[in-house]
Design a protein around this nucleic acid. Structure first.
Lengths: 211, 211
DNA sequence: CCCCAAACTGAACAGCGTTTAGTTTCTTTC
DNA sequence: GAAAGAAACTAAACGCTGTTCAGTTTGGGG
């Protein structure tokens, strides 16, 4: 058996990624395997390897799609938002909603372990950076006078907080919070962070606002 | 071959966990396997399964030790700290230091996926809760007038933020921040959060501190 | 001393990702 | 139009993996 040419190289790649996406929409990554994917697309395991390089690279490609999707949704949500603080709230909500809707894909994208020695490809890093950039962009629009370095750090802190909260709210693993909703946590986090970011206290501290 | 009785059941368990701990101190979980562990303790793979139930349960037991260690270090660090804000800062630093020192054990403890259907055992959940409780305890000592529910949520937000930042600072995976240190991010996060927690703004907002 | 239960293992099983050799087909060249 | 070469695809094998099970050895209690 050889040379079926049912699909072009590109079609085959797209088909495979679609199958992976659909699988991960229903089942966790640990239940997926190269052989199952191969069976689902109707090709031999070795064909998938030929197409993507390795099973790990297939996962990497799937993660790229996840990150693209998340970025696209986020960017669209803030595109016409004039208020940076509102935009940041929207970003956080989108993030949470996505983590809840596609928990397996979301997890895989952020906790995928690269076999030691090997480095994460540049196109993957840049996808993560694009997510950070969305936060940084809104921060720079708040009008608060901050250095580039401050904005850089703040965007990471913002992202880390949102991500950690999503882990608690949507995490199917060890972490699972029941007595606080993701929305409550996000609100408290964003309110506190933005308040302090846009109205920093002077050295020596402010007076308490009550009693 | 049978009935060696080189070790009691307890000794064997401790020995196995020690070997796992040592392994994970040097190498990531993906490189570890039941068979490697068995070889390291000088027993057959089936013996490890008999002792712990399954390889997954062995990892769970190892995670319990990790969480205990982290809790013990944290509790010790704040035991004699009178200032709750300082205590919270110490907790965060301990957390970051631990994630840096034992990245593989730290990761495994928090992102270990339980094979679907199966639930996380109660003794594992309670270990996570104990970590949250350390934050909650300090929050309730700040003197800020908060409901129990507020403290509950705030402790989760605090933990989530610290955890997310540690992922960025110590994460060997997809996430890896280079232009901001963990300390910088932790400081910014804690300062902003605690400021707003202990000095909440009134409705309508404060005046900016500078024009 | 015997017997049972506990301790421990070797071998087998099904599954995994990957490699390799090989076959079939398409495309190019003469 | 036939020959040659490249491309597409796979079956089979390799060395792993966690788990099961039948079977052997041993220590302790009756």
């Amino acid at each position: 058996m050889a040379r079926r040419n049912d699909h072009t190289r590109d079609e085959l790649q797209r088909l495979t990624l679609k199958v992976v996406k659909d699988f991960l929409t229903l089942y966790p990554p640990q239940e997926m395997s190269l052989r199952k994917v191969a069976k689902l697309i109707g090709y031999a395991p070795a064909t998938v390897i030929n197409t993507f390089g390795s099973y790990g690279d297939l996962l990497l490609a799937a993660n790229a799609e996840t990150l693209d999707e998340l970025h696209s949704l986020s960017a669209a949500a803030v595109r016409n938002e004039t208020q940076p603080r509102t935009a940041l709230r929207k970003l956080a909500r989108i993030y949470l909603a996505y983590a809840r809707k596609y928990p397996h894909r979301w997890h895989l994208a952020f906790e995928h372990r690269i076999p030691d020695q090997k480095v994460l490809p540049e196109w993957q890093k840049s996808r993560i950076d694009r997510l950070f950039a969305l936060f940084a962009e809104q921060l720079s629009r708040t009008g608060a006078r901050k250095s580039l370095q401050d904005i850089h750090i703040a965007s990471r802190v913002l992202w880390a907080g949102v991500h950690g909260i999503c882990l608690l709210a949507a995490g199917g693993a060890v972490l699972q919070e029941k007595n606080a909703t993701g929305e409550q946590m996000l609100d408290m986090f964003l309110n506190s962070f933005l308040e302090s970011y846009t109205q920093p206290v002077m050295k020596g501290g402010n007076l308490p606002t009550s009693g």
